[in-house]
Design a protein around this nucleic acid. Structure first.
Length: 849
RNA sequence: GCCGAAGUGGUGGAAUGGCAGACACGGCGGACUCAAAAUCCGCUGCGGGCAACCGCGUGGGGGUUCAACUCCCCCCUUCGGCACCA
């Protein structure tokens, strides 16, 4: 295959021609196919797959370019690389398009995928497209259903009533992400809360492991781990039973401050507390309490969660006994107590909890100080705020008086456990994952409802339960699947009688919770969800790249699924992603790109104007990957100029190096002036080229390896080009040879960043394709060490001059050279340095009195 | 309120405790051109000076050190996360 113009190298850099040419060539040669198992070490490089919204945006360009640099670099480093791509293809926009434009979600989605696949190919990303997965494909989502059944068998998938966001106008449930400013995203009607029967995944069963394993994720950014830890929200405390006066039951509360229990002067229950009805039945307070509860539950749930909410409440008329003091205390109901956390009931300690303090002050309830502040003695009768610190000593706390709060917690917990009044428990903020969605474009939940047999899981052999096609898209009236008779009415797998299917579909986060396993398997083993052998070979993902917006949701769900699938015995790993890189946003003019702001940069237009290599190199050069990238049209021009200069430099040298002609006369007169090297001997010139070459190899390699700092790697290549550009062909064989090596190395170092131009230059320099299949160059230490160095000389820490000395010079030699320097002498004159600090290779500092 | 990240020229950004501002953009001046574009060369932190040079300078204030963008303490600002979570 001949990729070179027989008449010689084009003098002008024309990305359009070379990019399409090499993309076709790479595809034809199957260059990015995942290798069969061999002796090489594996590297699994994965960028988060996109939702096929229609077109790729600059965020995608950045995300996938970063992944591509890593994949191409690791290939050249001798790894067997898996670098796949796919589509997170279920979701609302497809259904919205169906409602608005009458296009079926399937058509809409697959059209979008086709377009975006083309766009990604135009960027020259090295994907193994044979492993492409599409989550709306029944061959994919059948395994969502299979995992659901496995989890159902193990009690990890269950159904319960729960509150959901409800749009009264659209008559449908909304996902959290479809609620914008407390209103429906489509019709702007305020959302209500509604109790519905919903399916859940029991992620809380793994809460402790998910938290503990955060410590093992050393390749993750600390802030992502912090967010996950916050989200899981583990807190250790004690559940204590407060017997209700005059009844058999007791009220269970949860507290992390058991040391303050002697100061508990009342209990507060959530309005939804299950014992509420029984507590107030027949009491004079009943109507008032009912009115209060009704009023609170009619309130917007979001409003209730706001921190500024006024603490309201009413007395229930009932009382409970504080198990430590034996004293009866009143039971109140309060709007600030949440049924969803702990037990839905708290012991109120106004002296040591700000919320309880405010509540007590408002309702004239007793405040009882039980911890004395060691810094500033508190007056128990005139507290102005709660003392919430865990420092000091207990007071008025029976046998525990005098103990530090921390010791008291342990001692009181022991006593309570001994007496059977309660036990130590761990509470999590994390809730089980509600996966039911009243939507069409998602995975049908494989459950059948039979009047005789009840809830019956669809047998594995009957999977997949596929989406019906005869569904009208109105955007009204709840689950679209309920509209399909063909889908809705079925036979019971158990008794063969008439039955109805579950009409909810799964949250689309289910799809993305295990797709990284699917890439190892698909399409070779369509008969199983994951091929244990292939997964054992490729997983975990060595480097995962995506946006910070998934710091909690997707990354937590994926970790959960991995652990569940491990416990199913299918895989051996505990964690799916060893390394995580969260790239920053692409912004322009200070804000995120958006249509309404009119600051969107269209990747297609960018590629058409400058080529994919320019688009890639600019996104890498403009900022380190984890930071936001401020888009600059001028910066893009500069990057394009850089690639043009690389091209022209190679074009200048190719005839000398390879003997091939140049297509048209290259403008030798415009070549730089060789100023720095005028008069330098050929050997000095060659040495200089080689030193620059090896130093650049070292810098680029280190920048990629250490922190993926592609911006400084590109800067190193620019400096390298600047230096090489100073040298003009003069017919000296040693110079010609050194430049041949230098430019060949430039093509190699450029290959992960700008693969198309690198490939073309590689060929022009007389090498057989492909540059991406070559070994990454290695810096020779011989050329990294200099015989002489220029050393800054400081006097009292201020720079006063420089000297050139042998690298291995002793302190005495350096001192002598420094004092011999006229400039330095002018500063020192006849004074004797009190101290000399010499850091070989770095500087010398003379300390004068 | 708690936790985390950040603050460096006109701009994006560089700097294992060791010459602050690499690299690039922009700007200014020049070469080439009839002219322009493209390309190439030079200068470009601020202040002072004809100049050699000098002083100042990494959000603010202290400290450690021969030496601090970097380490320590206090404060300010911005961004992100969590938050009536008992």
């Amino acid at each position: 295959m001949e990729m070179l113009d027989p008449t010689g190298m084009e003098p002008k850099y024309d990305p359009k021609t070379i990019e399409s040419r090499w993309q076709a060539e790479w595809a034809a040669r199957g260059l990015f196919a995942t290798p069969e198992p061999d002796s090489r070490k594996k590297f699994y490089c994965l960028a988060m797959f996109p939702y096929p919204s229609g077109r790729i945006h600059m965020g995608h360009v950045r995300n996938y370019t970063i992944g591509d640099v890593i994949a191409r670099y690791q290939t050249m480093r001798g790894h067997a690389v898996l670098h796949p791509m796919g589509w997170d293809a279920f979701g609302m926009p497809a259904e919205n398009a169906a409602i608005k434009q009458g296009v079926h979600p399937t058509t809409w989605t697959f059209d979008n995928i086709a377009h975006m696949r083309t766009q990604l190919k135009r960027l020259g990303i090295a994907y193994d497209w044979s492993r492409e997965v599409t989550t709306c494909d029944p061959e994919y989502y059948r395994w969502n259903q299979w995992f659901f059944l496995k989890m159902y068998e193990r009690g990890l998938a269950y159904k319960k009533f729960s509150a959901v966001n409800w749009c009264p106008s659209c008559e449908t449930v909304l996902a959290n992400e479809q609620v914008v400013d407390d209103a429906c995203w489509r019709c702007d009607t305020p959302v209500a809360s509604r109790e519905l029967s919903q399916w859940f995944f029991k992620i809380t069963a793994y809460a402790d492991e998910l938290l503990k394993d955060c410590d093992r994720l050393t390749g993750w950014p600390e802030r992502v781990l912090t967010m996950q830890r916050n989200w899981i929200g583990r807190s250790e405390g004690v559940a204590v039973e407060f017997p209700v006066v005059g009844r058999r039951e007791s009220i269970r509360i949860f507290t992390t401050r058991l040391d303050t229990i002697f100061g508990a002067t009342f209990l507060t229950l959530a309005p939804e507390h299950p014992m509420m009805a029984a507590l107030i039945a027949g009491r004079p307070e009943e109507p008032a309490v009912r009115a209060f509860v009704d009023r609170i539950s009619a309130q917007d749930p979001r409003l209730r969660l706001a921190a500024e909410l006024t603490k309201e409440g009413v007395f229930t008329g009932a009382s409970a006994v504080n198990p430590l003091t034996g004293q009866p205390i009143p039971i109140w109901v309060g709007n600030f107590v949440l049924m969803g956390y702990g037990t839905g009931a708290i012991m109120a300690v106004p002296a040591h909890d700000q919320r309880d303090f405010e509540f007590a002050a408002r309702h004239h309830l007793p405040i009882c100080l039980v911890i004395q502040n060691p810094e500033e003695t508190l007056d128990p009768d005139h507290l102005t705020a709660a003392y919430v610190e865990e420092a000091g000593r207990l007071v008025a706390s029976g046998e525990f008086t005098g103990l530090p709060p921390h010791d008291a917690q342990t001692r009181i917990a022991a006593l309570i456990e001994q007496n059977g009044h309660g036990r130590r428990v761990v509470n999590y903020r994390l809730r089980d994952w509600g996966i039911s969605r009243q939507r069409y474009w998602g995975t049908p939940i494989p459950i059948v409802y039979c009047d005789r047999c009840g809830l019956v899981p669809v047998p594995e052999a009957q999977l997949p339960v596929t989406l019906p096609t005869d569904v009208p898209f109105t955007g009204e009236g709840g689950s679209p699947l309920a509209e399909s008779e063909e889908f809705f009415f079925t036979t019971c797998p158990s008794c063969r009688g008439e039955a109805r299917r579950e009409t909810d579909t799964m949250d689309t986060f289910v799809d993305s919770s295990w797709y990284f396993l699917r890439y190892a398997t698909w399409p070779r083993r369509p008969d199983q969800a994951v091929d244990p052998e292939a997964v054992a070979r490729w997983l975990p993902v060595d480097q995962y790249i995506g946006g910070i917006e998934h710091a909690v949701l997707h990354l937590l769900y994926a970790r959960f699924f991995t652990k569940v699938i491990r416990d199913l015995g299918l895989i051996h790993i505990d964690e799916p992603f060893t390394g995580l890189l969260t790239q920053g946003m692409v912004i322009k003019g200070g804000t995120k790109m958006s249509k309404s702001k009119g600051n969107v940069v269209d990747p297609d237009h960018l590629i058409a104007t400058y080529g994919a290599d320019t688009a890639r190199v600019f996104t890498l050069f403009a900022a380190p990957p984890e930071k936001d990238l401020d888009w600059s049209d001028e910066g893009v021009e500069g990057t394009h100029r850089f690639l043009g200069r690389v091209w022209r430099l190679v074009a200048l040298w190719v005839p000398h190096i390879t003997g091939r002609p140049i297509a048209a006369s290259s403008d030798a007169a415009s070549a730089p002036s060789d100023e720095a090297l005028r008069g330098a001997s050929p050997s000095a010139r060659e040495e200089r080229i080689r030193r620059a070459m090896h130093r650049t190899i070292q810098r680029v390699t280190r920048d990629i390896e250490d922190h993926y700092h592609f911006n400084t790697a590109v800067a190193a290549l620019m400096e390298y080009l600047n230096l090489l550009s100073e040298i003009r062909p003069d017919g000296t064989p040693s110079t010609r040879e050194a430049m041949g090596d230098a430019l060949t190395t430039l093509a190699l170092l450029l290959a992960p960043f700008a693969p198309h131009i690198a490939e073309q230059l590689w060929a022009e320099l007389g090498h057989a394709p492909s540059v991406g299949r070559q070994a990454w160059p290695v810096a020779d230490p011989v050329f990294l060490a200099d015989s002489h160095v220029t050393l800054p000389v400081q006097i009292n820490g201020k720079l006063r001059g420089t000297i050139t000395v042998a690298s291995a010079a002793s302190q005495d030699e350096v001192l002598r050279a420094a004092l011999a320097d006229p400039k330095i002498q002018g500063w020192v004159s006849d004074r004797v340095p009190r101290k000399v600090v010499y850091v070989p290779g770095r500087l010398v500092n003379l300390v004068l009195s």
